[in-house]
Amino acid sequence: MNGNKMDLRFSALPENEAFARLAVSAFVLPLNPNLEEMEDVKTAVSEAVTNAIIHGYQGKGGEVRLQAQYDGESKSLCVEISDEGVGIADIQKAREPLFTSRPDLERSGMGFAVMESFMDQLEVQSALGKGTKVRMTKRFT
């Protein structure tokens, strides 16, 4: 099996959180991930897409991009979730467990910590007023 990739753009609407999870699950299926690996990827994608909708676009809508590719030989997956929203001023601070800018929305500040622990690698790029890109990789067994 060789490589595969996909590139999806969808409206920054809460109903698309489930759509993004389903899309990425279907995409990685040929790699035969086990149940736990599948849940890891779904959860991490859910976190990043939710952040784009709530924080990036502040619930006002926009476009979220979900890109994914894998290599069949090494069974390694790379997922990128990007938005063109407000951006993050201090990425290091944002990544700290329990840091949230929106306690008023009952957010707990655990999204990045979940992405980090459920995937092998997490990279966050962001520029104020331009947007945010989250890149995650995971190697399946």
Binding site: T43, S46, E47, E106, M110, V114
Partner: peptide, 13 residues
């Protein structure tokens, strides 16, 4: 069948 960090907020709330 599924929960992400949104659920933590709901439960702690």
């Amino acid at each position: 069948t599924f929960m992400d960090s949104s659920g933590i907020g709901v439960i702690l709330g």
